[in-house]
């Protein structure tokens, strides 16, 4: 009986220590984990938005280049018209 008591006491200690090791490590709460997930989602959304804006910026830059070309041609055309009209007169 004494031996049994001793064994049961040892077991109880072992179980208690195990429980302490498993249960007492600090972990974030469910709300905190959700907060981290929301933050990650926000970062992903920002990355997508930035990608879209960069695409938009690239298209606008092409448009600016095209307009510069059109303006140069228009200026050349204007000068040619002046010269033709001078010959006309």
């Amino acid at each position: 009986m004494t031996f049994l008591k001793k064994m049961m006491t040892h077991a109880l200690v072992i179980i208690t220590i195990s429980a302490l090791v498993m249960g007492c490590a600090r972990r974030p709460s469910a709300e905190e984990v959700a907060q981290l997930e929301d933050l990650k989602a926000e970062v992903a959304a920002l990355e997508r938005e930035i990608s879209s804006k960069e695409e938009e910026k690239s298209q606008l830059q092409q448009q600016v280049s095209q307009l510069d070309q059109d303006l140069r041609k228009c200026a050349e055309d204007k000068e040619k018209v002046r010269q033709r009209l001078q010959q006309w007169n």
Binding site: R27, V33, L39
Partner: peptide
């Protein structure tokens, strides 16, 4: 762990 959570929170906050 809580430490890992805090680290990730800091990283993602900076990234955001």
């Amino acid at each position: 762990t809580r430490d890992e959570w805090q680290q990730q929170m800091a990283e993602f906050t900076q990234q955001r």
